[in-house]
């Protein structure tokens, strides 16, 4: 983003310190924790993601699925109604299915565990989309449409006919700032940090709250951990 002012510089000191990742180890292994007890399914993280990353209309790097059978609808568990959400974006797998199948190596794992996409190399065969068990990759099917005349994003827009996906806001990491979705969550349901530091908040939460990975049995070993709700948010007292 050469000719753009990073909004991080424009932040007040208080906002800036709110978004700080905090101390990290020498070799960070980035991970995100999503607390399903705190998520209220408000879509704030999805909206700011679109703005931050200049994601065109009709495309979502980040979305909110509802636990149960239908969107924003309670499900029944042991006779009681309950309602929980499953925020879903790239899981940044340790053993990603997508990077292995890309015929031109346009998607790859970084040293710090981030799964990245090179839009300049992508030929648009969509094999990664086939391989990904989480369905979180997004293809540029048509010419991009945006709600504004100008670009809102802090990153380069991606060309027609190529794949794109969540990057854990890789452009914010050098400033020591958490991804946008983490910063914007009103319920503080998202926590970002270094899994290699046993004392980091993500490490402690995964340990203490029994953080689970999505589709663990497929062996992709995601770097996004979900904290199951301890107390069901029931609709009856």
């Amino acid at each position: 983003m050469p000719d753009k002012v990073s909004p991080i510089e424009a932040l007040s000191p208080a906002s800036r310190s709110y978004g700080e990742i905090g101390p990290v180890s020498a070799e960070p292994r980035w991970a995100m924790v999503v607390d399903q007890e705190r998520c209220v399914g408000c879509w704030s993280c999805c909206v700011i993601c679109k703005s931050e990353n200049d994601v065109p209309l009709g495309m979502w790097w980040n979305r909110i699925d509802t636990v149960g059978d239908a969107l924003d609808t309670p499900y029944r568990e042991q006779g009681e109604l309950a309602m929980h959400w499953l925020p879903l974006a790239c899981q940044h797998c340790e053993n990603p299915a997508c990077t292995r199948v890309c015929p031109v190596g346009a998607t790859y794992s970084r040293e710090d565990g981030l799964v990245m996409q090179d839009s300049g190399r992508c030929i648009g065969c969509r094999y990664c989309l086939v391989a990904c068990p989480y369905g979180v990759r997004v293809f540029n099917w048509g010419r991009p449409e945006r709600p504004t005349e100008f670009h809102t994003g802090m990153v380069e827009p991606r060309p027609l006919g190529t794949m794109e996906k969540c990057t854990f806001c890789v452009h914010r990491l050098p400033d020591g700032q958490v991804p946008s979705c983490v910063w914007s969550c009103p319920g503080q349901a998202r926590i970002f940090g270094d899994l290699n530091d046993p004392q980091s908040r993500v490490s402690r939460l995964v340990r203490e709250r029994g953080g689970y990975q999505l589709l663990e049995e497929r062996g992709t070993d995601p770097r996004v951990f979900y904290l199951p709700p301890r107390r069901k948010r029931g609709l009856e007292p």
Binding site: W60, D65, T66, L71, L88, P133, Y134, G135, L215
Partner: peptide, 12 residues
């Protein structure tokens, strides 16, 4: 059929 067993959150 989607592997993540929840209804899609957005019409895609």
């Amino acid at each position: 059929f989607a592997t993540v067993p929840y209804p899609p959150g957005v019409p895609v």
